[in-house]
Design a protein around this nucleic acid. Structure first.
Lengths: 254, 254
DNA sequence: CGCTTTTATGCTAAAATTTTCATGAATATA
DNA sequence: TATATTCATGAAAATTTTAGCATAAAAGCG
């Protein structure tokens, strides 16, 4: 029989497919069949296997990258790039064994998405969305704080949540915010303020990740004085003009 | 503006549409047809499908945005059409003022998505995903039962959840299941069995919506005897052969 | 080494899915 | 109301998938 000079091993072929998908976000069975010089059946079987392993999303005619479906959401997240920077900075503060208390918000979500696989931490959160994101992590322990779900902000609120939080002793709390100036952190929802106050009280350290846009804005209710912040994280350098006034108020700025 | 690629996959096209809608809050079938170089029929079908999934609002001539933040967790639902039928049947049991206790699962999610706008009910749920879905409803009161989040099934489990459930008195509980035969409902996860038992105990009536595929299958742990079911809902007619043996066991079959 | 078993691949026909087209009905808009 | 769009439907065409089977290579094993 003729020897097959170009014959790829199965794993090799699948690696190629993955690479192709990462590059283009999609592949067509017909293209791959052509490129790899195997039947479409073989490609289909490969794609099915990869889909089974959750590495790609199989669709009629080919496959899509997993992140493709999320592209819509990503594009949707306001100031996505800035929040990405903030997320990376925030993650540096996480250490093995920590107990972390978190609120909701898109910035927090970017943090959750990027949690390093190796990290072993315990999360308490009032946000079902964050909880679901964290649940994808192999080693994170996730405890969702139950209570009435706020229609607007999609986090749990109410006396029960506050009560439960008071029973926790967390190493750090990551607090998403809506407004903040040199005086203090503020919010427009009274119920949420109550929960945030409880979160701060339950934690040794308070971390505030926020886009710089929210600095120097104030809302109706005060959550806590700016001086109580242990670490303020924005997308800007700590040397940036906007940040200067906060350097003296806050213990650490990243 | 809108770029034209050669031969888009269906999912890809729909993702594009979603992105377009998130961006502009609306799309016209005619524009999309032009931009994506497919017939308006195809676009219409896409829009109808997306509307069916509750991701956009279909209107004459196009579609509108529906404030949406869950595309990421929107995996493809297995046996979608069947679950749709089950959802519609189940919704008939809901009455104003009811307190409803629910587990998770894709079938339950289809129910949640289709909850009529006019209905005023209180939901207790162990599933963050269901909670988020219900939170879109203008009149539903949603209480998320907190606890440790199970990595696999994405519902809260543990003693705390069981304890909280025991304090509830619900009118009905909607229980997603994994296995069931003439003897009883069974599950493969011990922790989840404990929670489900508590849910049954806390409710006056137990409703089981399930695709017929799960009938006559059994798993490791028993949740409750089949005879205790108040209402069994499948995609099949109660007259169907598969259902026959259950008619005598269960109070009501839809 | 031979022998069996497993795995990978390709082929075919039938089934399912997707898309387009044609048509009349329904709906918007001037 | 008249006119133009848009919609729903079913049939047809194009494409993709499935399933069963045959072949050949690879792996195990006495």
């Amino acid at each position: 029989m003729l020897t097959n000079r170009n014959s790829m091993l199965k794993k090799e072929r699948q690696a190629f497919i993955i690479k192709e998908i990462n590059l283009h976000n999609k592949v067509l069975s017909s293209d791959l069949s052509m490129a790899l010089d195997v039947s479409e059946d073989t490609i289909r079987r490969d794609l099915n296997e990869l889909a089974m392993e959750g590495r790609v999303v199989k669709v009629h005619g080919g496959a899509l990258s997993k992140s493709y479906q999320m592209a819509a959401v990503q594009a949707d997240t306001y100031a996505y790039e800035k929040k990405e920077v903030i997320a990376m900075k925030t993650l540096k503060l996480f250490k093995d064994g920590m107990v972390i208390l978190t609120s909701g918000g898109t910035t927090m979500r970017e943090i959750a998405k990027r949690l390093p696989e190796s990290l072993q931490v315990t999360f308490f959160t009032i946000s079902p969305l964050i909880a679901l994101e964290l649940a994808e992590h192999p080693k994170a322990d996730v405890i969702l704080l139950g209570g009435q779900l706020s229609n607007a902000s999609k986090v749990t609120i109410g006396a029960e949540v506050v009560q439960k939080i008071s029973e926790i002793k967390a190493d750090i709390c990551i607090l998403g915010i809506n407004g903040m100036d040199l005086d203090g952190i503020t919010d427009s929802d009274y119920e949420i303020v109550q929960v945030k106050k409880a979160m701060i009280k339950a934690s040794k350290q308070m971390i505030i990740p926020t886009i710089s846009e929210k600095l120097n804005t104030a809302l109706r209710y005060k959550v806590t004085p700016t001086a109580d912040i242990d670490c303020l994280i924005t997308e800007l350098s700590p040397l940036h003009d906007t940040i200067q006034p906060y350097l003296s108020q806050v213990k650490l700025v990243l």
